[in-house]
């Protein structure tokens, strides 16, 4: 199980990194193409914006593993350990509720786009595909979040150390 999850994170990270490289390259060469060669990429902005959406959502589950999502810890951390564990469970329920709501609303939104068939003006890429990364990513976020929280709340420190090693 752990192996499968780690592999999943790895795939997301590599995919997101590839998109970041595309984004950087397309922007940098876009400057050269416009300034030096007088032939700007007409599709540049469409690609940039799509890359940004994909990076934001693809890297979001990874950010759970690197603990990069900021939260205000001051109040909760002031409670004793035992109470903190209870709060962690409460937070977990809230996170599930929020992400699951987001998941179903995003399916609704994507289905509207699929129905109207709106496409990007120049490359004619369907928006349902560009934004489609969101519901997929939300599922992955749920998985990553569960994995990290279970590790933190339910495993003893000793088990955690073993896991890390």
């Amino acid at each position: 199980m752990k192996k499968v999850l780690d592999a999943l994170v790895k795939v997301e990270a590599v995919l997101a990194a590839a998109i970041l490289v595309i984004l950087i390259a397309c922007t940098f060469f876009g400057v050269l193409a416009r300034y030096l060669f007088n032939s700007p990429f007409t599709w540049e902005e469409e690609v940039q914006v799509a890359c940004m959406v994909w990076i934001t959502f693809l890297a979001a589950p990874v950010a759970f593993h690197t603990k990069s999502h900021v939260a205000i810890e001051i109040l909760v951390d002031a409670f004793p350990q035992k109470v903190q564990r209870v709060i962690e469970v409460l937070i977990m329920i809230l996170m599930y509720a929020i992400l699951i709501y987001f998941f179903f609303r995003s399916l609704e939104f994507i289905s509207v786009l699929a129905r109207t068939g709106r496409k990007t003006p120049i490359l004619m890429a369907p928006y349902s595909v560009i934004y489609g990364v969101a519901p997929v990513s939300i599922i992955l976020m749920l998985i990553s979040y569960t994995y990290e929280t279970v590790k933190k709340v339910f495993l003893t420190p000793a088990q955690n150390e073993k896991e890390e090693a």
Binding site: H69, I72, E73, V76, I87, L94, I98
Partner: peptide, 12 residues
């Protein structure tokens, strides 16, 4: 203040 990540708090 419940330590829910900021992005999720705003969504919530």
């Amino acid at each position: 203040f419940m330590k829910v990540p900021v992005f999720a708090s705003v969504l919530g």
